[in-house]
Design a binder for these strands. Structure first.
Lengths: 256, 256
DNA sequence: TATAATGTTCTATATTATAGCACGATAATG
DNA sequence: CATTATCGTGCTATAATATAGAACATTATA
């Protein structure tokens, strides 16, 4: 019944499973949680109480139910704070220059996770979700990262990929991705013209850490009718310059 | 040596202590962590590996050290997402109207925690830290919350308070706080004129949940020379209207 | 009002976490 | 460059801990 065996510390794992229950639920009760993770309610209660003591969970005294706690939020804000602090001024500068929403993402396996954004103040603008997760192959940020990965790692990623055809433009086989990545390399930046969503276009460039790994990326996203080819090209030059500056601050030394 | 006994699930508690080690450290090694939490390194290793498996921690394969993981970040973004989603449009509207930084905070005991912000785009602006924690007594948001708490709860808070005199204007005794709260009640909004930091002034109003508890607040922060008395009053009327709308969406029904 | 479901406490037992030791690898030191 | 210290990691026996069951109190439901 238990799906993942050979877990190290059982109770810690169970506690984490409990936290993950709240990914799609704002409030849950003890019995409810117990059922979700397959534990006796008294066992669940012990774990929940422990999490509550450190404010990883909070109890709504009126409903008797639990929700994610503030300490979890506070810790979450510390994740990759270095990268975020370095990048934010650049994100703001980009928004100021182009009046389109700017995103900072981090690679996580075959996906990117949206770490930070600065939205344009225009009424028609792209609004991304910080904390959200999207596949590498259908985003400009993802392609910017993939194009700069060592061949072996890229192969690993591609072999484990499953495709969803979000739009008519979505790349949905290895060959067309490789082709697209080739273009990314020669251009020095990545584009996504309605590959994820109709009407949405992006430009992106990768950020390298001091092990020369393209672990993050920045993109500018806007409605396609404003993100013309010329405009994307214009944006890309600033994007490349800024991502290089950020990479430099992270200790990256450009090799030949 | 162990400070808090009668903890429920020991290993879960220890795992949380380990996560908290990273509050002021971007990267830590196994032995280092073991020392910080007072555990044998092999014990610490087991806990750390478990946290790593669910990406609560991540290992930097090059340095061998650990850092906070992306899953923690993702979970953190889910905390109080309801309140945040409801509030953000109002925050943005306020920035647009007054061109000063707007904050959404949550009460946490004797403190407020900054949950969300929308910064002004002016070059001189207030820049707050999401995830940051400040005492109730020296912030407009804190006073907005305190002024609307039941007497008994307020007394509890005040009795447990220790004061730091951040500026000459900082309220640093119970009487002056009570006096200030009286004014907040009659005005319907709270102010902070350089009580936390010289040159910084704020206006704030509370948000009520459907148990009529002032659990959150919104503030507008700017440099004092722009935040004149008249301007603060002007801001306050929008602030009051918006916080009431948000409270309503949360199920709060204004009683007489 | 009766019945069901839920949150919570307590306890004995068996499972689990623990720390000690050992090993290889890496980094610091002389 | 050699030597020594430090670090991360795996294994194992034992002691300590988490666990689920039963029971009760409280709240929700029929």
């Amino acid at each position: 019944m238990a799906s993942s065996e050979n877990v190290k510390i059982q109770s810690v794992n169970r506690a984490i499973q409990i936290l993950l229950c709240f990914e799609n639920n704002e409030e849950l009760g003890v019995t409810e949680i117990g059922k979700m993770v397959g534990l006796h309610k008294s066992t669940a209660f012990g774990l929940i109480s422990t999490l509550e003591m450190s404010k990883m969970l909070e109890k709504n005294e009126n409903s008797g139910k639990y929700r994610l706690g503030l300490e979890l939020f506070r810790l979450g804000t510390k994740v990759n704070s270095n990268l975020r602090h370095i990048s934010i001024p650049y994100l703001e500068q980009l928004v100021k220059m182009y009046q389109e929403t700017v995103n900072l993402v981090l690679r996580d396996g075959n996906s990117v996770i949206y770490l930070e954004k600065v939205e344009s103040s225009r009424s028609m603008r792209i609004s991304t979700t910080v904390g959200g997760k999207l596949p590498l192959y259908c985003t400009a940020v993802g392609k910017a990262i993939m194009a700069n990965l060592p061949q072996s790692e890229l192969n690993n990623i591609l072999s484990g990929m499953t495709f969803t055809k979000y739009t008519n433009n979505t790349l949905h086989d290895t060959n067309s991705i490789l082709e697209s990545l080739e273009k990314v390399r020669s251009n020095g930046y990545a584009e996504d013209v309605e590959e994820l969503e109709t009407g949405l276009s992006c430009v992106a460039a990768p950020i390298f850490n001091h092990f020369s790994s393209p672990f993050a990326a920045i993109s500018v996203s806007g409605p396609t009718f404003r993100m013309t080819e010329d405009f994307r090209k214009e944006i890309s030059s600033a994007l490349i310059q800024y991502t290089q500056e950020i990479s430099g601050k992270l200790g990256y030394i450009k090799s030949l």
